[in-house]
Every structure is written in C-alpha cells, then in structure tokens.
Write a protein that binds this DNA or RNA. Sequence first.
RNA 1: GGGCCCGUCGCCCAGCCAGGAUAGGGCGCCGGCCUUCUAAGCCGGUUGUCGCGGGUUCAAAUCCCGCCGGGCCCGCCA
Length: 651
Amino acid sequence: MIDDVLANPLRHLKDSIIELILNALRNRCITDRLRGYLYLIIQEPPRKEFGDLAIPLPRLLTSCRGMDLRELASLIINSVGGSSLISRAEASGSYLNFFINTRTYGSLVLKAVRELGDRYGVPKADRPKRIVVEFVSANPIHPLHIGSGRNAVIGDFISRLLIASGHEVERRYYVDDVGLQTAYLAYGYLKLGKPEPPSGIKPDHYYGMIYAATVTVIDVLKLRNELQKAKELGDYARIKELNSRVDELMAHLQRLRDKVRKEVDKLIDELSGEEDPEASVKALMKAYEAGRPEASVIREVAEKVLEGIKETLQTLGVNIDRWDWESDLFREGLVRDVLGRAKEASNYVLHKGVPALDFKYLLQDKGLREKLRVPKGLEVPPLILVREDGSTLYTTRDIAYTLKKFKEFRADEVINVIAVEQTLPQTQLRLALHSLGFRREAENTIHYSYEMVRMSGASMSSRRGVYVTVDEVIGRMNELVKEIMQLRGGNDDTLPLKVARSAFRYMMLSTTPSKVLVFDISRALDRKQLSGPYLQYTYARAASVLRKANGVPWDKVSFEYGVEGLRRDLLWLVGAFPEVMSKTLEKLEPDDLIGHLNRLSDTFNRWYDQEPIAKEPNEVLRALKLFITEGVRLSLKVGMGILGMDVLERI
RNA sequence: GGGCCCGUCGCCCAGCCAGGAUAGGGCGCCGGCCUUCUAAGCCGGUUGUCGCGGGUUCAAAUCCCGCCGGGCCCGCCA
C-alpha cells in the first residue's frame, strides 16, 4: 500500500491547511461539518502572486457567529506557524491566501516522483471492483464513423483509467446482428450473389455501401408504389412531394453508384422484380432470430464487416476483451428466460395488444427513481418486449445481455458507453431489471452518456451511406503528419500513425463528453489545430533533455536556493498531478486531465525557452531543474497513457 | 405539446454542480525569435453587452423564474 502522503502531495497540503484552519477556529466557531466544506472551497487563486491556495473567507463567517472578516483572517494567520508546509498566509480582499514553503513541499514532491516513478499520479481505487465496460458496439453494417469513434475513444479512456486504478475491467463489444439492419445488408448481399470486396476496399466500407444501397433502393421502390397510387387518385400535391423525395433518394443512390456501380445497378434490377422486398427482409430477420440455418447469411456478412471494424480499432489502439454476438443470447436461451420471467412480473401487461412492462407504479417511488437514476421529469412509457409478429425488440435483448455481463464476469458494475439519445431505453433497461427482480444489477448498471458528433453542414445517415469514417479521418491525419515530419527531416515510419491516432483521440476527448461535438474535417486536418501532438512533442522534448543529462542526479537535488518563477509553477503543477488524476477517476471525465497536461506543457515550454536545464552550470541548481523536468515528463507520460495517447521518446 | 442538454472574443472550447480577486486557453490576424538542451516551440500585440429580461445576494458567467435560438428524446428502429 502506497503511503497517502507520498501518493498525493497536493492533497496532503490541502489537508494540512484545513487542519490548521480547524485548529485555529475550534474554540470560536462551529467546526463540525467544516472539514468537508473547506475541502470543497479551497482553491487555486487565479494568479500566482496571490498565493498557492486560497479560501474565500465570507463563506466561513456563517460558521463563526459574531466575528468579522479581519478577526477571522488574523485568527488563522496567527496559527500558520503550526505547519511546516506553509510559509505564510495573508488576507487579500475577501480571500485568505496561503503560500507554500517550497523547501518542505518541494521535498515532498521530490520523494513522490523519485519513489513512484511512472506510477506517480496513478490513483488507487478505495475499493477495487469488477467492472464491465461495454463500448463501441457499432452495428456490423458499416465502418466506424466519427460518432462511433468518439464512443471508442471515451470507452477506452474510461477502461484505461479504471484498470490503472486497480479495478478488474472487462471491455466488451456488443455485436448487434439481430434486427432489421443486418437483415437489410444480408438481403442485398444475397441478391448480389455474396460479393467479396474489390481489392483496396476494406470490407466494412464496401458492405456499408451495399447496406445503404439496399435500403435506399427498397425505399425508392416503396415511394414509387405510393406515387403510382397518388397518380391514380390524381392527388397532385402528394405526387409532387413524393417526386421530390424520390429525387433526393436517387441522388444518394447516384453517389453510391459512383463508387460501386455494378452492385447498385444489379440491386435496382433484382429488387425491382421482387414483389415485396421489405417483407423478405423481415422474414429473413425472423428466421435469423429463430436460429434457422437459411438465415446464417446474416452472421456471415456481419463477420466480414466486423473484420473491418476490428482493423480500425486496432489502428486506433483500442482493445476489446470480448465480442458478444446478440444472436448468441437466443442460442443460449437467455432471451427466453427474460421473457419467461417477465410474464411472472407484477407489472407485466399487454400494451396495445403486445407483451410489455409498465413502470407507472414503480416511478411513483421517489427513492427508487433516485436509486435507479431515472432522470428528473422523464416520462417512461411501457417497454414493449415482443412485436406482434413474435420477434423481440432491442431493449428486451439488452436485458438478457446485461444479465449475461454481470454473470459471466461476476461484475459489481456494468458501464454502458452509449450516446445520450438512448437515455430512455437505458432507463427502461434499469427499470425492467428491477421489475424482474434483479435489483442489484439494476442499481449497478451505469449509462455513461455522451453527446453525439455532428458534421458541420450535412447530417450523417448510415441508411444513405452518408458519414465520415474514422479510417478516413485518421488516414488523412496520417498523411498530414507525414508531410510535417518530412519537413522536419524525420524518417521513422512507425511514428506518423502514432501521432495521427493520438491527435484523433485528443480531438475526441478535448470536448467534454456531455457536449455535442461538431466535427469539421477541414478544421480537424488543419496542422495548427492538431493539439494532441503538442503534448507528445513536449514529452519528447523533456525526455530528450533528460537523456542528454543522463537522468536526474537525485542525491544532489536540493531546495536550498528556494524555487521561484516558472520553476515554482512547474513544481506546483507536478505536485498537483496526482490530485488531478484522482478527480479524473472520481468524475470519469477527461477534461481536467487534458487541461492539466496542457498547462503543464505550456509552462514547461516557456521555461525551456528561458533557461538552460541540462546545461545549467551550477550543479545543485542543475539537479533541481532536472528533477522538475522529470516530474513534468512523468506526469505527461502517465496522463497521456490514460488518454490512450502514444508516448513517444522522439518525435 | 412534454422532458433533457447547449448558448462565453471573428471561429473552437474551459470556467457554472459547491456564487466571491482585472472572465481563461487555443485557432485566426499583426510584429518578432533557430551557430546554444527537439522552432509540432517561444515572446509581444489584437479581440468579450458571458443569448435576452427579471429576481435572490454584500457579491451572479455561476443560483431561481420567464423568454429567444440550436440539438436530442418522446416507435411493435437501434
């Protein structure tokens, strides 16, 4: 067990200040609940001149009756001598500012960095849990687009963070092969005589176009039927509307035809001769769900698409531990079990004539709403379990899948990284689990929600084959990085991809997951906007300095000259790194970490430009500078590792 | 119509949950710095009625109410 003081210098510093304040106020104020509150409000001043940490005083007055600000301030200031970590405190406006004693605090950070090495800053979970993280789970009908890319990067970040902190994590990808979408693809695939992708085209890209073409051709045929009826009725307004919709679809089809001409032509030809292609697709879906062999073509083509997706994930550096096929849930009898159990549930109803679970009664229980994290004000309609034709719905299968995840991994917690638009079905999932008697599972199924990625300009549509793929973005970033590297005279072939994918990850993580990310390809490919490489560059620079200096002469490091200016800022930032990581683990959000690494890099680069490090003539000062550089290097290494960015010794 | 989220410099984004010190970065634009530890860097300059209107408070970008604008959800799709 790592000593807490060692593991987190800033936390220790905060604790000392809080202790000092509590001691100073003990006889004059109500200090019962002050500790937690102080921890909440203790903050870094906006500018370093004010001090290192500050407390807004007026907030304390409520606990100290009959005292004024000045009295309160002097009471605390007078007891500062009690801590060796604090050199002084001064009141300024409504704040009380604390200045660290760089000798004692510096030694604390030094010890931590030296002893922990590249474990520095890695938080330790209080109670290690077994956690399943389900993410990506893109349907096996097209390549990963940038929305799935965001999911992949976020899910991977969460997994890395949880694993590093000591949790047992299993990363799972849910292959959604049951349902209409894969049936459409398989139908088109069959009609085309099971074509293989031409050389040079990845299977996910190729079959993605086949999927879009199949759906679009069927939609056109449906519209043409309606058009025929409208013509018979002489409904001109309707005719006009339908014509414009057909034109729109034809434009999409034309675009697809530019890429896979023969396939599109053949699909139009084949499907026009069919009486009711949509019915055939549905029949195929039902046959697949029933496990009939003639429908195995669905799995066959889904496997091919998945190969392409796996390649993309590998490029991204995202690892998946288990691939769960939705169709296996049927084979294993899990869906049947869920349906059987549902029939016994007290909230089982027939809704519009089909089996459903009704949550009206459950939702009246405020405590339960909170426990199951039902969003405030959200109305939850009954969850329909089975279609009229007997086939199941997505959320029904998800109940079975969730139970499988808990059971197989003996999980304490299941985190589903799923876009915000699925808030309702994810809520229904938890309510359904609860209704079926799986209370522990319901309470520990977490929907990690993130906002969608939108393209600037057009909107994405996989049904029409309109999307920006992860492959395309990373590929073009890779080209851009190669160009830049050539200009700089680099010659390492493996580097550009590592830089490009890190840039992609950084881009996807630098907007808070809960905010819509508007993706602009030209902006993404602007070399000035590539901010991920900045961190990699700074790391390589620090590493290079340390290489030239043959590492840190630890025993010579001393704070006897004091630490001021940028060196002091850097010492502070290095000391704060574990606290940032600990907050990141608590919130499971990347923004604080990214912000901290940026600040650290900015400060380091400025410092690097101002004074020599390895070339510093004074031996003692040189040792101090190298130690600071090592602290920066380690923080960047650990932080970037959690973000899933490649840590490069040279760039 | 109901619910949730978002609106901060020309553009992208942080700060809001736990109200407090002249509202921070990045991009852009203008001007500088490579014989010296990696110039994907650094320095200087430029840019803001924090969507609008009320309210609470000693103090509001931050909390509350209303409005306006944008997104998402409200399916026998996923």
